[in-house]
Design a protein around this nucleic acid. Structure first.
Lengths: 329, 329
DNA sequence: TTGAAAGCGCTAACAT
DNA sequence: ATGTTAGCGCTTTCAA
């Protein structure tokens, strides 16, 4: 592999001139430029980012922390991040933390070691204290899940309002017994969505039963199945379920089917996220649509601004209730 | 951010000694070591990988090329790659090429620029010629999809045999009219799976109708729906369908449901990949299970061996037919 | 056991 | 318009 020296030698110029050509500096005469370009071609030269980055102390790499690539919710967000990053001459490093602190540390080190210029964290299980510490010296943005008390800018939706609307839709469809399949309330979004759920119930003077609020530790399909199984074992069964993620809702649907019951007639189901699967289930799933692609774009733009030293402030994006078969009698 | 110089100064030693401590070189006296470690702690020093990598001309980063993170098939493979990489002190850079040559180029440049030490390509749409050229000077492994005529080591399964078994299962369940929903045959796996399909039909003296072989350009759910729609419009409708990916099969199931038909009684369906969602559909999907996690581990180990300069040869892993409701009358 | 110094590939300030 | 040179942070050879 050729280096800049060899190119300079071959072109009969100095390394500085080669560097100028490389960086599209205008103060190079067309003739010299041509010579250099020929030398580059002949030697098959590719500049080393390592040298360049060391010199410029930047890597033009952005870290994206996600708890698991297997949750389709993140897919579209990442597309938004990636498109925005690439058009700003950054590349992204997808980091699947598996909500594992050890892996998390590896990725935190990457930024400490100057191998990345910034982080977009989407992991609800991230160590918030460490993240806040890191944010004091590095550029960090939170996407979707965030720390209420921290000072890291974030982009998200109004989770409480979205949950409120989802539950209100169930109530207005005639349901009075509405269950909640929630995540662990150590996560902010889980607390916010429960609040929206309770707000809707209270507004319509419906009872809030602890029995009808199931907490699921994970967001897999199986976890939704399990939660639904618990609900179906109750004496007083709900007639509708609001699940805080589509994956949980899809698992719940599956369990309803497996028990020879029908959604929405026996039990109506609403999910959250509008992942692409949610339109493939039988019945198709009513859900809250988050503007995932846009969220990714906004997050990436915020991070790039932050890296440039600009002031950035948090953003709340709109959401939408998508009504499909699982709630339409 | 402190650098190695400042640590050396604070500890009252030379930078060389600090480097020795950092790299666990044994020729440092315990006393000196302690001094250095204290200085590191006090200054909150983190070594810069940029400097280290420039010097060592390695990045300890592996590139993983996938056509789209939205295909769950890749999820488990990536987990395998990541676990193996991390335990060998490498990190992975997930590269979503979107089957877009321009993005592909960005990632190829990353390795040319020394920002990555090797590539695992899982993108069937990758520019094989470029990949082969790159393989002459860099470490590259192919996973799942590969180039028959190239010289890049790969890990995959026997696609023809797997498809043969899937179709044979349909035949033995009593089906005689079996359709194929395939990918574009510019992809090797599509050609191989069609061969398996035809081999099974021939073996049982069943007719091969072009009308029953649908080619889908993409692997999304909607594409499976569309393909199924075409099949349902035929005069002579098949009674069973083999789709070369679970996502296609799930779309097909959805279309069957939407037409008030039932799988498997009206039409049986077999998929390919055993993605986690395939067990959540109604009915659950019969499919070919690929050892995805293992495939990822093997690919990562092969790549790391290759980077170390060892000789590596291609690997064919086992697969399994998972029989579920969509073929069980 | 430790230090001095060269050099990895590049950019930019300064000089011409 | 172009060249010279210092230096980004680190590892490693050589010398002491």
């Amino acid at each position: 592999m050729a280096n800049i020296q060899q190119v300079a030698q071959k072109a009969g110029v100095s390394v500085a001139t080669v560097s100028r050509v490389l960086n599209k500096n205008t103060t190079v005469s067309p003739k010299t430029k041509l010579k250099v370009e020929n030398a580059i071609r002949e030697l098959n030269y590719e500049p080393s980012m390592l040298g360049r980055n060391l010199r410029n102390s930047e890597s033009r790499l952005l870290l994206v922390l996600i708890p698991s690539i297997s949750n389709p919710f993140y897919t579209e967000i990442i597309n938004g991040i990636e498109d925005t990053a690439v058009s700003n001459n950054y590349n992204i490093l997808l980091c699947d933390t598996d909500s594992n602190p050890q892996r998390e540390n590896i990725y935190f080190n990457l930024i400490k070691n100057k191998l990345a210029d910034g982080i977009i964290s989407m992991d609800p299980a991230v160590n918030m204290q460490k993240l806040n510490e890191l944010a004091a010296t590095h550029s960090i943005i939170q996407c979707s899940e965030y720390d209420e008390n921290g000072c890291i800018p974030y982009v998200t939706i109004d989770n409480e309002l979205a949950a409120y609307r989802a539950v209100k839709h169930l109530i207005q469809s005639g349901h009075k017994k509405i269950a909640l399949i929630n995540s662990d309330e150590k996560f902010l979004y889980a607390r916010q969505r429960r609040q929206g759920y309770e707000k809707a119930l209270k507004e319509f003077h419906l009872p809030i039963f602890n029995e009808w609020m199931i907490t699921s530790q994970q967001l897999g399909f199986e976890d939704g199945q399990q939660a639904m199984r618990k609900l179906l074992q109750l004496n007083e069964k709900p007639t509708a379920v609001f699940a805080v993620s589509d994956t949980l809702a899809i698992g719940a649907l599956r369990e309803i089917n497996a028990n020879q019951l029908k959604a929405p007639n026996d039990i109506a189901v609403v999910g959250f996220d509008n992942i692409s699967f949610s339109n493939m289930t039988n019945p198709t799933l009513t859900t809250i649509s988050q503007p995932m692609y846009k969220m990714g774009c906004v997050a990436a733009n915020m991070l790039i601004d932050k890296i440039k030293g600009k002031d950035v402030s948090s953003v709340i994006l709109d959401h939408e209730l998508v009504i499909r078969e699982s709630t339409l009698g």
